[in-house]
């Protein structure tokens, strides 16, 4: 392997390769996958001069550490965390120079869940159906990182974009999820729909890249049973028999039989990638056209 590569020193709780995913294959049962906090992924790539579609690392809670073989520009975005290069403090949310052989460590998230490590040139893991994303539902794409693994990097694209003003979003103290009702809101009673918009919900610890689970009052159904399986969108608020909505994230199954009470548009999903268990959730009903 060329010396454009890095080795994994500390894989962390769950670190995976992500790009913008593989949409267009849902009819074959292939989830779209892709970075959950897409704005953070895109920003990281811009900071190191990559196209936004280049592959980055997505960490979970505990961060990760890698040793680069050749001097490389790296940016850490998403969940804020202490960044060091060979033990010396380095900036978060800005391009940082990592000398050949040095260890870049993105520490545990100070708030939020998922940090992104963008490398100049991007991670050149093997593409599957046009994407390098790890799909945790169906097992497509690169395996989650393990200590000692080596991943190749591409050739740098040139100088980074002029400095972005890096938005340092505060902690997600309340997860606001605006949604458009339907397609199966008629499967719920008026009271059930009111529960969705007025009830106290929290982020459940049982969530993952497939779906963010909520805990709260169950939504009352107008009719029992399941639907014949039907296509499921990203952002679906699917309601299983326990009545507690699950927000479908990027690795969601492409079909399902539980009713979808509403859909959160993609542009509102990034905060869901950073909401820690216990965070209060508020569902806000949108009118068609996007205004509340």
């Amino acid at each position: 392997m060329s010396d454009r590569a890095f080795s994994v020193v500390r894989a962390g709780a769950l670190t995976i390769v992500q790009d913008l995913g593989r949409p267009g294959h849902a009819h074959l049962g292939v989830p779209r996958s892709g970075a959950l906090d897409a704005p953070a992924h895109r920003l990281g790539n811009r900071l190191v001069g990559n196209p936004e579609s280049a592959a980055t690392l997505e960490t979970m809670l505990t961060g990760c550490a890698v040793r680069v073989r050749r001097a490389t520009t790296v940016a850490v975005t998403g969940a804020p965390c202490p960044v060091t290069v060979d033990g010396r403090p380095a900036p978060w949310g800005a391009p940082c120079h990592v000398p050949a052989g040095a260890v870049l460590d993105a520490g545990p998230a100070t708030h939020g869940l998922r940090s992104y490590l963008a490398f100049a040139g991007g991670i050149e893991a093997e593409e599957v159906l046009g994407s390098r994303s790890t799909d945790l539902l169906s097992g497509l794409g690169p395996d989650p990182l393990t200590d000692g693994a080596v991943l190749p990097l591409g050739a740098p694209h040139g100088p980074p974009a002029a400095a972005d003003a890096v938005p340092h979003a505060g902690p997600v103290t309340e997860l606001l999820l605006p949604f458009l009702p339907g397609p199966r809101d008629a499967w719920f009673t008026e009271a059930g729909l009111r529960t969705l918009t007025t009830g106290r919900f929290r982020v459940s610890p049982a969530g993952n890249r497939i779906g963010l689970r909520t805990e709260g009052p169950p939504l009352e159904r107008a009719r029992p049973g399941e639907l014949p399986s039907e296509g499921m969108p990203l952002g679906a608020l699917q309601v299983p028999p326990n009545g507690q909505p699950v927000l479908f994230l990027h690795d969601h199954p492409t079909t399902g039989g539980y009713p979808v009470v509403g859909v959160v548009p993609e542009r509102f999903l990034a905060p869901a990638a950073q909401a820690v268990p216990g965070t209060p959730v508020r569902f806000l009903r949108l009118r068609q056209g996007g205004q509340t």
Partner: peptide, 16 residues
């Protein structure tokens, strides 16, 4: 430009 066309048991879902 690419959307999704997902047939199922009694439905066709279009996205994008």
């Amino acid at each position: 430009r690419r959307g999704e066309i997902v047939p199922a048991a009694r439905t066709v879902f279009l996205d994008g």
